[in-house]
Simulated assay, not measured.
Amino acid sequence: MSMSTSEKLIIMRESERLNRRAMSELTGISYSSLTNYELNRGEMGFKVAQLILNHPRFSKYTMWFILDQVNPKVGQISPALAHSGQSETILDPSDKSVG
């Protein structure tokens, strides 16, 4: 099952570790429009997709975004969300006294 355009847009932005404001500034798409696309409140047209996918930071996702395909040999990949920090670790208390 294919992801929606809004889901793909969010995944691309988060994979590049950008907030909406930064992506808006990079692509020239207004913040409010980008927000609406991500929240699935409006249909993203071809020209908007071009603005995003023509940017060097996002062009590597073109095949994935449009066709749900990848071709790493030609630099076409899918976004992979990087590990965003350590998972919670709880250590057992030490038996040693302090002080």
Results as ranks from 00 to 15, higher is better:
S97A: 12
S78T: 00
M3W: 12
S59F: 06
P93G: 01
T5H: 00
K60L: 04
T35P: 00
L34I: 02
Y37Q: 09
P56Y: 06
Q50H: 11
M1D: 05
N36V: 00
S2K: 14
S87K: 03
I11H: 03
I66S: 12
N71W: 03
D95M: 04
V48Q: 15
M3V: 01
R13E: 09
S2G: 01
T62W: 10
R17D: 07
E16T: 02
L81V: 01
Q76K: 13
H83W: 09
S97W: 11
D92A: 13
R13F: 08
F58N: 02
M23T: 04
R21P: 00
Q69M: 12
S6Y: 13
H83C: 12
E14K: 15
L51Y: 10
V70A: 02
N19A: 07
H83M: 14
F65A: 02
V70G: 01
N71E: 09
D92S: 13
F46Q: 10
A82P: 05
Y37L: 13
P72W: 02
S6M: 05
S33Y: 14
A22T: 07
S15A: 13
S87W: 03
L91Q: 08
V98H: 07
E14A: 04
M12N: 06
L9V: 13
S6R: 10
S59N: 14
Q86E: 13
M44R: 05
T89V: 10
S94A: 11
S6C: 12
G85N: 09
N19D: 15
E14N: 11
F65S: 02
I29G: 04
S2I: 04
D68G: 10
K73V: 00
R20E: 11
R17F: 03
L53S: 05
L39F: 03
V70M: 04
S6H: 15
S84C: 03
S78E: 14
T5W: 00
G42A: 15
I52H: 08
E38H: 11
P79F: 07
G85Q: 08
S4G: 12
R57D: 10
I52V: 13
S32R: 07
G45D: 07
T5S: 01
D92Y: 10
D95R: 02
I77G: 00
E38T: 09
K73I: 00
Q50S: 13
I66F: 15
S2W: 03
E25P: 00
M1I: 01
D68S: 13
N71D: 14
G28F: 05
K73H: 05
T5K: 04
P72R: 01
A49C: 11
T89R: 14
L26N: 13
S87L: 10
F46A: 12
M1W: 04
E43S: 14
S84A: 10
E14V: 03
S84F: 03
G85E: 10
Y37C: 11
E14P: 00
I77E: 10
L81E: 02
S97T: 12
A22C: 06
S87V: 06
L26C: 10
E7A: 09
P72S: 03
Q86W: 08
Q69D: 01
V98N: 08
Y61Q: 02
L53K: 09
T35W: 13
S94I: 05
I90Y: 05
P93Q: 06
E38R: 13
Q86F: 11
P93L: 07
S33N: 15
I90R: 07
G28P: 01
K47F: 11
K60A: 11
L91G: 00
P79C: 06
